[in-house]
Amino acid sequence: MAEQSIESSGQDLPAEGLVIGEEEVIKIVDMHKWYGQFHVLKNINLTVHKGERIVICGPSGSGKSTLIRCINRLEEHQRGQIMVEGTELTGDLKHIELIRREVGMVFQHFNLFPHLTVMENLALAPIWVKKMPRRDAEEVAMTYLKRVKIPEQAKKFPGQLSGGQQQRVAIARSLCMNPKIMLFDEPTSALDPEMIKEVLDVMIELAKTGMTMLVVTHEMGFAKTVANRVIFMDEGEIIEENEPEEFFNNAQHDRTKLFLSQILAH
């Protein structure tokens, strides 16, 4: 620990030139990321306000997953600044820890812990991160299992559940940490068609509670009904950013139009 705090303290710079509005929960300024020589994210500027629901779409390989994975430091950015809830993301473990407590994430492949029951999956972080007594953690877990409408599956293992149920457990697992922001990385892409709706329903319910959400998805129906803003990315850049109505009916860029025509064709 000592070593870490010494190293990181040098980078603990004040965020000069960044004026953070009260309602701005995420502010990304001139952010770049490389994988070796490959420039994955180029000059990303994005501000997210409290309670906003943002859908990020774009062709595969456009960097949309990488972008949201940068927000909770599953990926490291090389240039620019990311501020989450007033904390800047640097190599500082203390900052990373702080931000990860505030930001929940749901993955394409659920990533539930297969060796733990549903209840243990949910209670793990509250017990070990928030240092809650087991009974309280399980109570919290039960509340969220009810929210995602599968309290009866608490004693089962993830392997015994359907894909849709597993993804709902994953959402509940994130919610147990009481996050202020939720990131969704293609939450329905690995699901059978008949299970997509049950997951989207849970996400819509969550949106109604006023949760700040960033969703990478190809579900355009969800984008139309739930999002405040739709962001289109291609080749590591944010190409277009607009309200859903404008975005779908009156796209400005050719690349956006091409993408929409391909995705809405069938």
């Binding site: 909770n72 990860r100 993955f107 990533n111 994130s174």
Partner: peptide, 11 residues
């Protein structure tokens, strides 16, 4: 993915 999920919940 297991490590990532565990990191994401703050462990």
């Amino acid at each position: 993915g297991q490590t990532e999920a565990a990191r994401a919940v703050g462990l």
